[in-house]
């Protein structure tokens, strides 16, 4: 369980670094974010929701059955659009409206 930060997309705002509950994200010498302690990630996805550049994705470690998919989020207003990209490039999207309650 951890996150991956795409340095080519990172705009260096530091939002992920300041929001991470574990303080696990740092900025490198070029001002780009990276996760310094990937094994200590809880998988809460706070950084993904905070990133304005949509540069961060969540993945499952192989030790918990991960198969290489990456999950990122595009947020506009109350809509969170979760986009899952499978290793073959195939994608799946799930939209959540923050103003709608869970059914369960």
């Amino acid at each position: 369980m951890s996150v991956e930060i795409d340095k080519s997309k990172c705009v260096g705002c530091g939002g992920c670094k300041s929001i991470c509950p574990g303080g696990l994200i740092r900025m490198d010498d070029n001002g780009k974010a990276y996760i310094k302690y990937p094994r200590d990630c809880w998988g809460c996805a706070s950084c993904i929701k905070e990133c304005p550049a949509r540069a961060i994705s969540l993945y499952l470690g192989a030790d918990i059955g991960g198969k290489g998919s990456r999950m990122r989020a595009e947020i506009s207003g109350d809509i969170i659009n979760w986009i899952i990209t499978k290793p073959g490039g195939e994608t799946e999207e799930i939209k959540i409206n923050r103003k709608e309650s869970n059914k369960y």
């Binding site: 369980m1 998988g43 996805a45 499952l60 059955g65 991960g66 998919s69 969170i80 799946e92 799930i94």
Partner: peptide, 13 residues
């Protein structure tokens, strides 16, 4: 997705 996003990812995988 609203509380434990990894479970949804697992179901998709």
């Amino acid at each position: 997705l609203n509380m434990a996003p990894s479970q949804t990812l697992k179901w998709i995988e």
